[in-house]
Design a binder for these strands. Structure first.
Length: 679
DNA sequence: TGACTCCTAAACACTC
DNA sequence: AGAGTGTTTAGGAGTC
């Protein structure tokens, strides 16, 4: 360490001032830094994007399902129309209350359950995201069905009134009744699907229902939460707010649902009043018509219209505004053989996707089960370890030190749960990153946490008192490199820690001491006299030298990485292929924007790139160490014990759009986590 | 088993 | 004197 203390002119006071406001000038990370005040981005935004896509997809599926259902109805109707008595009025009461409250109750995870999940810490942030997305998808469907049902009932009543006055239109009454029944069936199917989904979650350990807890379907309606509320709940729970508060607020979240409902809620009126509906047996055509009508009320959303383009499969006609789109829709995609055929094709596409999804889910389940069994075989968790302590805390900290209570997350409740409790610790992202890609601490406890995890869960670490699975040195380096001038005062480093990680908002004495200790201990941290006083910089060369231990010497690790890569590449290809081959715009190239799959795939690539870079660089170690200026790039290091020398030479077998130019720089550092997300 | 890394804790010195 | 900063040592635990 540089011994300059004798000549230091630092001013503690100024340093503190700088520190307190230091975050403000860290422009590159402003988004992150200000997350707490501006609303957290990154993960949250990604989730929103995901939701948008999922929503869109759901809308398409919904429209098709409704169309399918209606087609069926009409066929049945045609078959029995001659047999049925036109007198259906007496049936109306029964039709008006056909759906129980339970049926209409969104079977989402209740606040209590969400809280429980969080408390148990059995879910990684990714899992929570996935969970939320799944719930949201289901919710969207159910919302749409509910809306549809309501409209049907309204229409039915309207018809009744008309009939009472005019004493006619029995056929339409019959239609409505039939549709009601069909709709009820659909709701039942939805309910069953959701039940299966929940059961699946339970099987996977993702969701635990207490013995005394009523089954989800029986949850009171008030406890049902719409997806955005779930997200909000997640935030608030991780922010140590009570779940009850969150549950109490049910405002605001209607963006998704309203959009969804408006976009796809089938207009019963249009269906019934549409001459085709009552006279034409070819139903597939109704979908566009119905939607076109229903969306006149909600001009801003239509499953078949977006970005000024008609999204009718194979069309892509440019429509300047919604009105022209409607005209186009009615003229070009009217009821004819072609449209009907296209609709059928689309139905098949959806069915294929559903089939594929089911298969992949099954496969995932098998993988998780398999990995869980394997991972828990060697050692059982003898002591409670939460996500945090299991990742990085040394025993002295997690057990002996009373100060280390932060491991016990203050998040509402947080009973410490053994991480090996269930397969749930294996997340989608962790699945493909198990093994050498994780830093040893993670491997140690089978809690794979990657920078990708953090990237996607920056929010999580900001709000939950979960110890980040990174070394102090890495965090310090990250903090410094994130700063515009690549230098920070000690106090600014402190602030960065507390800003980025809720965990470091407690026990300051402990971790601040550790920070100082690391700054002094590691040669890679250079103290420089500055106008501000003393600032700390990172000597990247030293940082790279810092890690003599190489995993290159471990053939098994390399093998694992390569095999992982071998698995990933086809997986990625399969993902894209399955998307593209279905010719669904959402899923094609640009679509890698599809948050869910796209991110997953890119995350996989990224992780494996890192791994391969590492292994490859062992062979072609061409990095002579870079100048501090080079090092100044924002860090993107993975949490892997990588070789210092490999920094540059990522002979990446896979190039990804996501591949950050900076990515390679830090590949070798053993810990460098936080960056990707933060950038 | 030993070298190594990382963490925590603590003592001490220096400056303001 | 007290707080903040910086350095150093020690010991435990895990990895390789």
């Amino acid at each position: 360490m540089m011994q300059e203390s004798g000549t230091e002119t630092k001013s503690n006071g100024s340093a503190i001032q700088n520190g307190s406001s230091g975050g403000n000038h860290l422009l590159p990370c402003a988004g992150l830094r200000e997350g707490r005040s501006n609303g957290e981005t990154t993960a949250a935004d990604a989730g929103a994007a995901d939701l948008a896509h999922v929503q869109q997809q759901q809308q398409q599926q919904q429209a098709l399902q409704v169309a399918r259902q209606l087609l069926l109805q009409q066929q049945q109707q045609q078959q029995v129309s001659g047999l049925k008595s036109p007198k259906r009025n007496d049936k109306q009461p029964a039709l008006q209350v056909p759906v129980s409250v339970a049926m209409m109750t969104p079977q989402v995870i209740t606040p209590q359950q969400m809280q429980q999940i969080l408390q148990q810490q059995v879910l990684s942030p990714q899992q929570l995201q996935v969970l939320l997305q799944q719930q949201q998808a289901l919710m969207l469907q159910q919302q749409q069905l509910q809306e549809f049902y309501k409209k049907q009932q309204e229409q039915l009543q309207l018809q009744l009134l008309q009939q009472q006055h005019a004493g006619k239109q029995p056929k339409e009454q019959q239609q409505v009744a039939t549709q009601q029944l069909a709709f009820q069936q659909q709701l039942l199917q939805m309910q069953q699907l959701q039940q299966q989904h929940l059961l699946s979650l339970q099987r996977q350990g993702l969701l635990t229902i207490q013995p005394g807890q009523p089954a989800l379907p029986l949850q009171p309606l008030a406890q049902g939460m719409i997806p955005t509320e779930l997200q909000q709940l997640w935030k608030e729970v991780t922010s140590a707010h009570s779940a009850e508060e969150t549950a109490g607020s049910n405002h605001s979240s209607l963006d998704l649902t309203t959009t969804c409902v408006s976009s796809s809620a089938p207009s019963k009126t249009s269906l019934i009043m549409n001459p085709h509906a009552s006279t034409n047996g070819q139903l597939s055509v109704h979908t566009p018509k119905r939607e076109s009508l229903s969306h006149e009320e909600h001009p801003h959303s239509h499953p078949l219209y977006g970005h000024g383009v008609c999204k009718w499969p194979g069309c892509e006609a440019v429509c300047e505004d919604f009105q022209s789109f409607l005209k186009h829709l009615n003229s070009e995609h009217a009821l004819d053989d072609r449209s009907t055929a296209q609709c059928r094709v689309q139905m098949q596409v959806v069915q294929q996707l559903e089939l594929q999804l089911a298969k992949d889910k099954e496969r995932l389940q098998a993988m998780m089960t398999h990995l869980h069994v394997k991972s828990t075989e060697p050692k059982a968790a003898p002591q409670p370890l939460n996500l945090v302590s299991s990742v990085t805390l040394s025993k002295s900290a997690s057990e002996a030190s009373p100060q280390s209570l932060p491991h016990t997350p203050t998040t509402p409740t947080a009973p410490i749960t053994p991480v090996t409790q269930g397969p749930s610790v294996i997340t989608t992202t962790s699945m493909h990153t198990v093994g050498p890609i994780r830093r040893r601490y993670s491997d140690k406890y089978n809690v794979p946490i990657s920078s990708a995890d953090i990237a996607q869960n920056q929010e999580f670490y900001k709000n939950a008192e979960v110890r980040p699975p990174f070394t102090y040195a890495s965090l310090i380096r990250q903090a410094i490199l994130e700063s515009p001038e690549k230098q920070l005062t000690l106090n600014e480093i402190y602030n960065w820690f507390t800003r980025m990680f809720a965990y470091f908002r407690r026990n300051a004495a402990t971790w601040k001491n550790a920070v100082r200790h690391n700054l002094s201990l590691h040669k890679c941290f250079v103290r420089v006299e500055n106008v501000k006083g003393a600032v700390w910089t990172v000597d990247e060369v030293e940082f790279q030298k810092r890690r003599p231990q190489k995993i290159s010497g471990n053939p098994s690790l390399i093998k694992n990485m390569q095999s992982s890569h071998a698995y990933c590449t086809p997986l990625n290809a399969a993902l894209q292929a399955s998307m593209a081959e279905n010719s669904i715009p959402l899923y094609t190239t640009a679509s890698m924007g599809n948050p869910t799959l796209g991110n997953l795939a890119s995350a996989i690539r990224e992780e494996l790139n890192g791994a391969m870079e590492h292994t490859n660089s062992n062979e072609s170690d061409s990095s002579p160490g870079r100048s501090p200026m080079q090092a100044v790039h924002p860090v993107h290091v993975k949490e892997e014990p990588l070789d210092p020398e490999e920094a540059e030479g990522p002979l990446s077998l896979v190039t990804t759009a996501n591949h950050s130019p900076d990515f390679d720089h830090d590949r070798d550092y053993e810990d460098e986590p936080v960056n990707e997300d933060m950038e």
